[in-house]
Design a binder for these strands. Structure first.
Lengths: 149, 149
DNA sequence: ATCAAATTAATTGCGCACAACCCTATTGCA
DNA sequence: TGCAATAGGGTTGTGCGCAATTAATTTGAT
């Protein structure tokens, strides 16, 4: 009566489930550390872009993070209400939102710069192993992103 | 005036962001395929456990998937309202919910068995590469899950 | 100059994730 | 036997992700 349980239908054999679980586990690991600077993981990621870029619009931000405005708009409003960013309109093109840091947002970078070392402290990774993993992950990511275009 | 932008604070250098983006990209890739059997990715994952196990409680399901009741309870209610599963109480211990498949839920396995090959069709992966990646991902996942206990 | 097409964000609605909390049933020990 | 501690799930609230739709603006072709 039971269907044959072929190997590829076993949960344990699915790369996708491993990636999914690891992604959840990593944001869980970041949570207590980021709590100290009152940011979620995605908010931290957005702030990292702004610490690099000074000023971006929603479209560019979405391209860098592979996320759309339905995710970013409410998140940016939350960062705004925390006083970390400003959301002005572009004068040349009124459709465009220009996102930039407030002084408070800039100052947060000092606190945030401690986060990576705190994470390493918690997990203790082999840096060479990490680099190898990242290369493989990025390769697969590129494949998936390209197959959409 | 600008803060020094040390390498570890560059978004592109963060393994975590790569994993996070890949996880999003993969569930995006599954979406159109799973649409045909009216399941989300997580619902598909839960069904896979049930196709293997016949019967589980919420606790065991949560342990297999690394998820808690706050995520699973509403999801199981949705699968119930689709007529794919039953949610009975255990007679021995009234606290326990026993999750099992309906006939409809069992029959869905036939349709679902086509999903893995459809995914491979879309992406075209080197199977040896995938296996190597999965090993590394699982290793890191184990590290993170253990560090909580 | 006009108006259709394209671009950029915002909004809405649904389904996760998870923390924090609550309730109930069971267990274990004094 | 009584009752505190524990275990199993459910509820609520917040914050993502993303599809689908809408609104406002700009561009571009006639």
């Amino acid at each position: 009566m039971n269907k044959p349980c072929n190997a590829e239908m076993m949960l344990e054999n699915q790369l996708c489930f491993s990636i999914y679980s690891l992604s959840n586990a990593m944001t869980r690991a970041y949570r207590p550390i980021l709590e100290a600077i009152d940011l979620t993981y995605l908010q931290y990621i957005v702030m990292m872009v702004l610490w690099q870029e000074q000023q971006v619009n929603v479209k560019v931000l979405g391209e860098r993070l592979h996320l759309d405005s339905g995710t970013l708009t409410p998140l940016l409003k939350r960062l705004d209400s925390k006083g970390l960013i400003m959301r002005r309109r572009c004068e040349m093109d009124e459709r465009v939102r220009l996102i930039s840091l407030t002084d408070e947002g800039k100052q947060l970078q000092t606190e945030a710069s401690k986060v990576p070392s705190q994470m390493r402290c918690h997990v203790d990774l082999d840096m060479q192993e990490v680099e190898g993993l990242k290369l493989k992950v990025d390769k697969l990511l590129m494949l998936l992103l390209d197959s959409k275009a």
